[in-house]
Computed example of a mutant assay.
Amino acid sequence: MLQVQGVHKSYVTAQGPLAVLAGVDLHLAERSSLALMGESGSGKSTLLHLVAGLDRVDSGSIRMGQQRLDQMSETQLAHWRRTEIGLVFQQFNLIGSLRVDDNLAFQARLAGRFDPQWQAQLVERLGLGDLLKRYPEQLSGGQQQRVAVGRALASRPGLLLADEPTGNLDEATSDDVLQLLLDLLRETPTSLLMVTHSARIAARLDRQVVLQRGHVQAPDAS
Protein backbone atom coordinates (compact mmCIF):
# COMPACT_ATOMS: atom_id res chain seq x y z
CA MET A 1 0.00 0.00 0.00
CA LEU A 2 2.83 2.41 0.96
CA GLN A 3 6.30 1.74 -0.43
CA VAL A 4 9.33 3.91 0.38
CA GLN A 5 12.44 2.92 -1.56
CA GLY A 6 15.97 4.28 -1.36
CA VAL A 7 14.92 7.69 -0.02
CA HIS A 8 17.66 10.22 0.63
CA LYS A 9 17.13 13.64 2.21
CA SER A 10 19.67 16.29 3.19
CA TYR A 11 19.40 19.87 4.39
CA VAL A 12 21.76 22.78 3.86
CA THR A 13 23.39 24.09 7.04
CA ALA A 14 26.11 26.63 7.78
CA GLN A 15 28.51 23.71 8.19
CA GLY A 16 27.47 22.17 4.86
CA PRO A 17 24.93 19.51 3.80
CA LEU A 18 23.38 17.52 6.66
CA ALA A 19 22.29 14.05 5.57
CA VAL A 20 19.16 13.04 7.50
CA LEU A 21 17.92 10.05 5.49
CA ALA A 22 20.44 7.87 3.66
CA GLY A 23 18.57 5.30 1.60
CA VAL A 24 15.46 4.56 3.65
CA ASP A 25 13.33 1.56 2.69
CA LEU A 26 9.92 1.10 4.30
CA HIS A 27 6.68 -0.64 3.45
CA LEU A 28 3.22 -0.57 5.00
CA ALA A 29 0.46 -2.99 4.04
CA GLU A 30 -3.19 -2.05 3.69
CA ARG A 31 -5.16 -2.06 6.97
CA SER A 32 -1.99 -2.36 9.06
CA SER A 33 -0.14 -0.15 11.53
CA LEU A 34 3.55 0.64 11.85
CA ALA A 35 5.45 2.49 14.60
CA LEU A 36 8.50 4.48 13.48
CA MET A 37 10.91 4.93 16.38
CA GLY A 38 14.33 6.51 16.84
CA GLU A 39 16.29 9.04 18.82
CA SER A 40 15.54 12.75 18.63
CA GLY A 41 16.98 14.10 15.38
CA SER A 42 17.04 10.69 13.70
CA GLY A 43 14.77 11.89 10.89
CA LYS A 44 11.44 10.37 11.95
CA SER A 45 9.42 13.53 11.37
CA THR A 46 11.36 14.25 8.17
CA LEU A 47 10.32 10.88 6.77
CA LEU A 48 6.72 11.44 7.84
CA HIS A 49 6.69 14.84 6.11
CA LEU A 50 8.07 13.28 2.92
CA VAL A 51 5.33 10.62 2.96
CA ALA A 52 2.77 13.39 3.53
CA GLY A 53 4.04 15.29 0.50
CA LEU A 54 4.99 18.25 2.71
CA ASP A 55 8.63 18.01 1.60
CA ARG A 56 10.53 16.59 -1.37
CA VAL A 57 12.97 13.69 -1.49
CA ASP A 58 16.47 14.28 -2.86
CA SER A 59 16.35 10.84 -4.47
CA GLY A 60 14.41 7.61 -4.16
CA SER A 61 10.71 6.95 -4.54
CA ILE A 62 7.55 7.04 -2.44
CA ARG A 63 4.58 5.10 -3.78
CA MET A 64 1.08 4.83 -2.45
CA GLY A 65 -0.74 2.25 -4.49
CA GLN A 66 -0.04 3.14 -8.12
CA GLN A 67 0.82 6.76 -7.37
CA ARG A 68 4.36 8.15 -7.20
CA LEU A 69 4.43 11.03 -4.73
CA ASP A 70 7.97 12.02 -5.65
CA GLN A 71 6.84 12.67 -9.23
CA MET A 72 3.75 14.76 -8.42
CA SER A 73 3.47 18.50 -8.98
CA GLU A 74 2.69 20.78 -6.02
CA THR A 75 -0.92 21.03 -7.19
CA GLN A 76 -1.22 17.24 -7.40
CA LEU A 77 0.34 16.85 -3.95
CA ALA A 78 -2.07 19.36 -2.42
CA HIS A 79 -5.02 17.45 -3.88
CA TRP A 80 -3.53 14.15 -2.69
CA ARG A 81 -3.16 15.46 0.87
CA ARG A 82 -6.77 16.61 0.89
CA THR A 83 -8.20 13.34 -0.37
CA GLU A 84 -5.88 10.44 0.44
CA ILE A 85 -4.32 10.98 3.87
CA GLY A 86 -5.21 12.04 7.38
CA LEU A 87 -2.79 13.83 9.69
CA VAL A 88 -2.63 13.86 13.49
CA PHE A 89 0.02 15.94 15.25
CA GLN A 90 1.27 16.29 18.82
CA GLN A 91 0.01 19.90 18.93
CA PHE A 92 -3.58 18.98 17.88
CA ASN A 93 -3.69 21.76 15.20
CA LEU A 94 -7.42 22.36 15.51
CA ILE A 95 -8.90 25.51 13.99
CA GLY A 96 -9.56 27.82 16.92
CA SER A 97 -12.36 29.77 15.21
CA LEU A 98 -14.38 26.61 14.49
CA ARG A 99 -16.50 24.65 16.93
CA VAL A 100 -15.88 20.95 17.48
CA ASP A 101 -18.51 19.77 14.98
CA ASP A 102 -17.01 21.95 12.21
CA ASN A 103 -13.46 20.93 13.09
CA LEU A 104 -14.51 17.29 12.79
CA ALA A 105 -16.06 17.84 9.36
CA PHE A 106 -13.36 20.15 7.99
CA GLN A 107 -11.08 17.60 6.26
CA ALA A 108 -13.96 15.49 4.96
CA ARG A 109 -15.62 18.54 3.41
CA LEU A 110 -12.34 19.55 1.73
CA ALA A 111 -12.06 16.04 0.31
CA GLY A 112 -15.69 16.03 -0.85
CA ARG A 113 -16.39 13.01 1.35
CA PHE A 114 -18.46 14.37 4.21
CA ASP A 115 -20.70 11.57 5.48
CA PRO A 116 -23.12 12.63 8.26
CA GLN A 117 -23.67 9.04 9.37
CA TRP A 118 -19.96 8.31 9.68
CA GLN A 119 -19.39 11.61 11.50
CA ALA A 120 -22.17 10.68 13.94
CA GLN A 121 -20.45 7.34 14.57
CA LEU A 122 -17.15 9.10 15.18
CA VAL A 123 -18.78 11.53 17.60
CA GLU A 124 -20.31 8.66 19.56
CA ARG A 125 -17.18 6.48 19.59
CA LEU A 126 -14.94 9.37 20.59
CA GLY A 127 -17.30 10.58 23.30
CA LEU A 128 -17.69 14.05 21.83
CA GLY A 129 -21.48 14.35 21.86
CA ASP A 130 -21.60 16.95 24.65
CA LEU A 131 -18.72 18.97 23.19
CA LEU A 132 -19.85 19.67 19.63
CA LYS A 133 -20.69 23.34 20.20
CA ARG A 134 -17.52 24.14 22.13
CA TYR A 135 -14.39 25.73 20.71
CA PRO A 136 -10.95 24.06 20.98
CA GLU A 137 -9.82 26.42 23.75
CA GLN A 138 -12.70 25.12 25.89
CA LEU A 139 -11.43 21.51 25.70
CA SER A 140 -8.84 19.55 27.62
CA GLY A 141 -5.79 18.19 25.83
CA GLY A 142 -7.28 14.70 25.61
CA GLN A 143 -10.54 16.07 24.24
CA GLN A 144 -8.70 18.11 21.62
CA GLN A 145 -6.73 15.09 20.50
CA ARG A 146 -9.91 13.02 20.18
CA VAL A 147 -11.29 15.75 17.91
CA ALA A 148 -8.06 15.66 15.90
CA VAL A 149 -8.36 11.88 15.50
CA GLY A 150 -11.98 12.19 14.40
CA ARG A 151 -11.12 14.92 11.90
CA ALA A 152 -8.33 12.80 10.39
CA LEU A 153 -10.60 9.75 10.00
CA ALA A 154 -13.76 11.56 8.88
CA SER A 155 -12.82 11.30 5.20
CA ARG A 156 -11.86 7.61 5.54
CA PRO A 157 -8.36 8.18 4.15
CA GLY A 158 -6.21 5.34 2.88
CA LEU A 159 -3.32 6.41 5.10
CA LEU A 160 -3.19 8.07 8.52
CA LEU A 161 0.08 9.76 9.49
CA ALA A 162 0.54 10.50 13.19
CA ASP A 163 3.51 12.40 14.64
CA GLU A 164 3.77 11.77 18.41
CA PRO A 165 -0.04 12.01 18.63
CA THR A 166 -0.12 11.36 22.39
CA GLY A 167 3.09 13.17 23.28
CA ASN A 168 1.29 16.03 25.06
CA LEU A 169 -1.00 13.77 27.09
CA ASP A 170 -0.59 12.03 30.42
CA GLU A 171 -0.18 8.26 30.33
CA ALA A 172 -3.80 7.36 31.14
CA THR A 173 -5.24 9.82 28.60
CA SER A 174 -2.65 8.73 26.06
CA ASP A 175 -3.74 5.10 26.42
CA ASP A 176 -7.40 6.05 26.06
CA VAL A 177 -6.82 8.09 22.89
CA LEU A 178 -4.62 5.42 21.33
CA GLN A 179 -7.17 2.68 22.06
CA LEU A 180 -9.93 4.76 20.46
CA LEU A 181 -7.73 5.35 17.43
CA LEU A 182 -6.87 1.66 16.99
CA ASP A 183 -10.50 0.61 17.48
CA LEU A 184 -11.66 3.06 14.80
CA LEU A 185 -8.93 1.96 12.39
CA ARG A 186 -10.31 -1.58 12.50
CA GLU A 187 -13.58 -0.22 11.09
CA THR A 188 -11.94 1.56 8.14
CA PRO A 189 -9.57 0.65 5.28
CA THR A 190 -7.03 3.07 6.74
CA SER A 191 -3.40 2.16 7.43
CA LEU A 192 -1.39 3.91 10.15
CA LEU A 193 2.18 5.17 10.16
CA MET A 194 2.98 6.61 13.59
CA VAL A 195 6.13 8.37 14.79
CA THR A 196 6.65 7.76 18.51
CA HIS A 197 9.51 7.77 21.01
CA SER A 198 7.56 5.48 23.34
CA ALA A 199 8.28 1.75 23.16
CA ARG A 200 5.11 1.18 25.18
CA ILE A 201 2.98 2.96 22.57
CA ALA A 202 4.85 1.36 19.67
CA ALA A 203 4.18 -2.12 21.04
CA ARG A 204 0.44 -1.58 20.53
CA LEU A 205 0.90 -1.36 16.75
CA ASP A 206 1.30 -4.26 14.32
CA ARG A 207 4.97 -3.59 13.52
CA GLN A 208 7.83 -1.49 14.87
CA VAL A 209 10.95 -0.20 13.12
CA VAL A 210 13.78 2.09 14.25
CA LEU A 211 15.31 4.90 12.22
CA GLN A 212 19.03 5.00 12.98
CA ARG A 213 21.92 6.62 11.10
CA GLY A 214 19.61 7.38 8.20
CA HIS A 215 18.40 3.83 7.73
CA VAL A 216 15.41 1.81 8.95
CA GLN A 217 16.30 -1.12 11.16
CA ALA A 218 14.53 -3.75 13.23
CA PRO A 219 13.85 -2.62 16.84
CA ASP A 220 16.43 -5.02 18.29
CA ALA A 221 19.14 -4.10 15.79
CA SER A 222 22.36 -2.62 17.18
Rank of each mutant, 00 (worst) to 15 (best):
L126R: 10
V216W: 05
G167F: 03
L47M: 13
S32F: 02
M72G: 03
A203S: 15
A221T: 08
L54A: 05
A111S: 10
Q143E: 13
P189L: 07
Q117S: 13
P116W: 08
L47G: 07
L193P: 02
L94W: 04
Q91K: 08
L169N: 02
V195S: 00
G141M: 09
A108F: 13
S42G: 13
L178S: 06
V12M: 11
T166Y: 01
A105P: 05
R125W: 13
L128A: 10
D170H: 02
L69R: 01
V24L: 04
H197T: 01
A162W: 01
P219F: 06
Q3W: 08
G158P: 05
Q15Y: 12
L69T: 05
L77N: 00
Q90G: 02
G167N: 04
D170G: 00
L50Q: 09
I62K: 03
Q119E: 15
R200E: 05
S45H: 09
D58C: 08
V20S: 03
D58G: 08
E124F: 14
L180V: 03
I201K: 02
Q107N: 14
L211E: 01
S97D: 14
Q91T: 15
G142N: 11
D101M: 10
Q67C: 02
N168Q: 11
G60I: 01
G41Y: 13
L160S: 05
G86H: 02
M1P: 09
S140E: 01
G23I: 09
Q121R: 14
A154T: 11
G6T: 13
G43W: 07
R99D: 08
N103Q: 10
L126S: 11
E187G: 08
R82K: 12
N93S: 12
G16I: 09
R113Q: 15
L205Y: 03
L36K: 01
T75S: 11
Q121D: 15
V51C: 14
D70A: 02
A172R: 12
G53S: 07
G112W: 14
Q76W: 06
R109S: 13
L36C: 04
D176T: 14
A111R: 09
M64V: 10
L185C: 13
S222R: 14
T173K: 05
Q143M: 03
